[in-house]
Design a protein around this nucleic acid. Structure first.
Ligand SMILES: [Mn+2]
Ligand SMILES: [Mn+2]
Ligand SMILES: [Mn+2]
Ligand SMILES: [Mn+2]
Lengths: 219, 219
DNA sequence: GAAAATGTTTAGATTTGTCTAACTTTTATT
DNA sequence: AATAAAAGTTAGACAAATCTAAACATTTTC
């Protein structure tokens, strides 16, 4: 199955939306891909033709088994390149997503397997996301929930779900990175903001928008 | 100046043909890019519009100063990736050209400068070709001629001009690589084949087609 | 259960890059 | 110089990916 760059981007976005709870809608996918619903409908027809998605007019989009497999291979390439950029070229985590967005489309089994070996076959990427193996199997994520839902006080940051430079730079500024251990001091019901404390540093408050995108596990 | 992948490939091929002696013709460029003359004419109009080439109907194609600069940046990316693949991922020289043909189109100054640093700022690529610097300046090539023209007996291989896997695999089989020192034993006028000898190994004969693509310098 | 609002699809256009077939220009040959 | 051959260009078509505007479906609201 030979996919174009556009098709790969669609498949990957559909996978991402399917990971969430809700159904994959035309508008939702258009928003995710920064395009228009009409374009999504066009592409949906092509991907259905290629048997990568199940799609019926007005009924939403779902990856087939084949589509899911394709998605996992693209995600593997994306996340390995992110590791390369951070571990070998000293990029910081907010810079790598965009570059990996392009590098992921260089399709070569051999390149990726060599790259993985070179990196020591990492299993999580710089944002805490698991890297599928060569067969497209993804290691079970450790139990993790978003910080806004955690009901335990002492937590460790395991991943960040939004990869925008905006959020990641904010986290840099606050000293929050993967592995950071933090304590929830207070939850404010009014706006669902949370007061947290890292080590001996003074406590500070983060918005719900931020805490929703920080994944944590109990310490 | 934002170039498409196709435009970049054209610019690079034009540069390559200009490096040779002859004028860059529509048919020659079509052959180099494995496309049709009609397509080249179409693209020539676009590149002229973007001021990357000088072009008048029926008069051939020449890079402008700007076009040349663009070409050198693409070549820099191409050759740095080739170095990466060979030096870090243990690819052999006949495998890397195709992959670099794709990787070269990921445009990021920062990525390339980091990659170059990571590789120790190499100045020649795995085929013996010089790597332009960040400003697009290419270190003067050491004096080198093709083996078929060399009139001196003891020579060192400095580069290979044809990057096809076919030729490079042949050279692998014969034990010819960059830096190999060889001695010309005999030249046969009939077909311009050459008998050469490497170290203490038995002599063997190579065709003119091969010797034309091996660049050497006197020892 | 109709009307309004929201979401989705279609129709038709555009851009990029390519092609074939026909035509034109240049170059080589007699 | 006339003609033949080769090289280059144009015209018209197509595929991929996108868009806007209009039409159509579905869902929500009253
Ligand atoms: Mn991408
Ligand atoms: Mn990531
Ligand atoms: Mn290329
Ligand atoms: Mn090379």
């Amino acid at each position: 199955m030979n996919l174009t760059v556009a098709e790969e981007n669609y498949i990957k976005s559909i996978y991402k939306l399917e990971e969430g709870t809700e159904a994959v809608t035309t508008t939702g996918l258009a928003y995710e891909l920064d395009t228009k619903p009409a374009s999504v409908t066009d592409m949906a027809k092509k991907l259905k033709e290629k048997k990568l998605i199940d799609y019926e007019k007005y009924q939403g989009i779902n990856l087939t088994a084949e589509g899911k497999k394709a998605a996992l291979h693209i995600i593997r390439r994306h996340r390995l390149w992110e590791c390369f950029l951070v571990d070998k070229l000293d990029f910081s985590w907010e810079e790598v997503h965009e570059l990996a967005e392009e590098l992921e489309h260089v399709r070569s089994e051999k390149l990726i397997s060599r790259l993985s070996d070179f990196l020591g076959n990492p299993t999580i990427d710089p944002h805490g996301d698991p890297i599928p193996d060569a067969q497209g199997k993804m290691g079970k994520q450790r139990a993790q929930i978003s910080l806004d839902q955690a009901r335990i006080k002492r937590l460790e940051v395991t991943a960040v779900s939004d990869k925008s430079a905006a959020l990641l730079e904010f986290l840099n500024a606050k000293g929050i990175r993967l592995g950071t251990q933090l304590e929830v001091i207070e939850r404010y019901e009014f706006d669902n903001s949370i007061e947290i404390k890292i080590r001996n540093q003074p406590a500070f408050t983060i918005s719900e928008q931020v805490s929703k995108n920080i994944m944590v596990r109990p310490l």
